[in-house]
């Protein structure tokens, strides 16, 4: 699917990266622990998180993640959004909670990828 498909599934709002919504995404991971994302993420293109700090952007950068989805209506501040824009990331925001967000995307065909 594309980032746009994921956005529609979650009824999410684009905060950064409107021009990159047609990028393809193959798998996703969801966590508030960036340590775990770094440890277990393998070629994930979407990171779902409720953590809202600059290290989320850096973690995504290190892992070549395409799109960050902030769940539970978390609102990243302008510094975080600017960092994301500099790195060409897409940032979405959804009111769904983590479990529901992951479930909806999984149901739509986006899986967890290789273990």
């Amino acid at each position: 699917m594309t980032v746009r498909d994921a956005m529609n599934v979650l009824g999410a709002r684009v905060l950064v990266g409107e021009e990159n919504l047609d990028r393809e995404v193959k798998s996703a991971c969801g966590s508030d622990m960036m340590s775990d994302v770094l440890a277990f993420s393998k070629d994930h293109s979407i990171l779902l998180t409720g953590l809202c700090n600059p290290q989320v952007i850096r973690t995504a950068e290190m892992l070549d993640i395409v799109c960050i989805i902030f769940v539970r209506g978390k609102k990243p501040d302008q510094t975080i959004l600017d960092m994301a824009a500099e790195r060409d990331l897409v940032v979405l925001e959804t009111g769904h909670r983590m479990f529901s967000s992951c479930g909806l995307l999984y149901q739509a065909g986006l899986h967890g990828g290789a273990i």
């Binding site: 770094l38 440890a39 953590l51």
Partner: peptide
């Protein structure tokens, strides 16, 4: 530190991996 998303005890093992 944990509330910032780190301290899961994966740092050094991850560096080795």
């Amino acid at each position: 530190v944990r509330s910032l998303g780190f301290g899961a005890g994966m740092g050094l093992p991850n560096m080795k991996k």
